[in-house]
Simulated scan of single mutants.
Amino acid sequence: MSGILPTIGLALLRWMSHWPLAWLHALGAALGWLTWLASPSYRRRVRANADLAGVSAADRRRSVSEAGRMVGEVPWLWLMPPDGRVLPRVRWQGAEKVDAAIAAGRGLVLLTPHLGSFEVSARAIVERWGAQQPLTVLYRPARNTFLRELEETARHRPGLATAPANLSGVRQMLRALKKGEMVGLLPDQVPPDGQGVWAPFFGQPAYTMTLAARLVQQTGAAVLVLCCERLPGAAGFEVHLLDLVEPLPAGNDEAAQVQAARIVNRTMEAVIARWPHQYLWGYHRYKRPRAAPGTLP
C-alpha cells in the first residue's frame, strides 16, 4: 500500500498538470479555505502575523486564497514537460538590473520572500538568463520521501542547480558566485541556530539569516530582491527586480551582521507592504531556530 499511494498521487498530479491554470487556481483557493477552516493553529498564526504587520482584514482574507493558489500551481509548474516554459506568462519590471550585473561580470544574490509565486520566479530567471549565468537556489528538502523526490525531479532544469541548506550548500553557493553566477534564497526563512541574528520584523524580534550578507561580503556580488506577483484571473505573473532599502554594510563582525539583518528585514517589510495579500502569513516566521547542522565558513 505504501508504494501504491505515491504512484496514484503522482498520476493524479500529472493529470492535473494539464488543467488550465485558472482551474488550478480555483481548486487551490478552495483548498486554502479548507485549510483555514480545518486548522485552528493556522488561523491563529495568520491572524497574529498579519495583525503585527497592520494588514487589513480584506487583504488577510485574500491571502488565504492566494496561499491556496500557490499550492494549486504545483502540478502545472513541477510537472511541466521538459520543453515547457513559463516565460510566455511572465511580465518583467526591473530586468535591466540583472542585465547590468551580468554585463559587469558580477555574481548576483537574489532574495525572494515567501510571497506570490516564488517558485515561478526562479524558473523565469533561469529561462531568461540561465544560458548566460546559471542559478543555484538554496532549499530544504521535504521530509516526506515522495515529496522530496518530486521536488528534486521538478527542479532539475537546465541552468538551475539546487543547494541543500547546510554547510556544503553554502560552499556550493560561494563557488557559484565567485564564477559570476546567480544564487537565490528566501531571506525570511528561519535559519538554523547559530546561522542568524535577532532583528525586528514588523516590530517583533525574528531570527534572521546572516547568509545573504555573508555571501555578498565574501564575493563582492550584487544583490537584488526578486518577487513574482500572481496576476488576477490567471492572467500570468509579473516578476519584479528591486533594490534593498539601503546597501548592506561592508563589515563582517557581529554589529555588521545585525545591521545587515535589519536592512534585509526592512526591505522585506517594504516589499510585503506592496502585496500583503500575496504573503504567506501562515509561515511560522517568529519561531525559535532549530539546531544548526554545521557552521558557516
Rank of each mutant, 00 (worst) to 15 (best):
A38I: 01
A212Y: 04
V90C: 15
P293W: 06
F237V: 10
F146G: 08
E229W: 02
L79R: 03
G28S: 06
E119D: 15
S63G: 06
P75N: 10
S168I: 15
V245A: 08
S39R: 11
Q189H: 14
L167T: 14
P141L: 07
H240F: 12
Q257T: 13
P88E: 11
A250F: 00
P141D: 15
L186F: 10
Q278L: 01
F202K: 05
T219A: 04
A273V: 03
T219P: 05
L150K: 02
R69A: 00
P40A: 04
G130L: 04
R171L: 14
W198G: 05
L160R: 07
S65M: 01
A122K: 09
T295V: 11
V98C: 04
I125S: 02
V264H: 00
G194F: 07
V74G: 04
R69P: 00
G94W: 06
L241S: 02
R266V: 13
P200F: 04
A273L: 03
A100P: 03
E119I: 08
L87N: 11
V190A: 03
E269D: 10
S168Q: 13
V109L: 12
L248W: 09
A29W: 01
K287S: 11
L177W: 01
Y139Q: 07
A161D: 14
E119T: 02
L185D: 10
Q195I: 05
G294I: 02
W129C: 05
R155P: 06
V90D: 11
L31W: 02
L10R: 13
W76L: 13
E246S: 15
L87T: 15
H25T: 04
T35F: 01
H18D: 11
L231F: 07
S65C: 07
R175Q: 12
E119M: 05
D51E: 15
A256R: 00
A26K: 07
S39W: 10
R123L: 15
V190C: 13
W36Y: 12
Q133M: 08
P134H: 02
H240K: 02
S63H: 01
P293M: 06
P113Y: 10
M70A: 14
Q257K: 06
R175S: 12
L10H: 06
M209R: 03
A221G: 02
L244M: 09
G233S: 07
R148A: 15
R62W: 08
V86D: 02
V74H: 09
A122M: 11
H156P: 05
E127Q: 13
G68E: 00
A101S: 15
L135G: 06
G68M: 03
G9T: 03
A104M: 08
A100K: 13
R290A: 14
D83N: 15
D243K: 06
A256N: 09
G169M: 07
P249T: 08
L115H: 01
A48G: 11
M268N: 05
Q172C: 14
Y207W: 08
L244G: 00
W23H: 13
V126H: 04
T267L: 08
M70V: 14
S39L: 09
P297E: 05
W23N: 09
E229R: 10
G194Y: 06
G28I: 05
W92C: 11
G116I: 12
L79K: 06
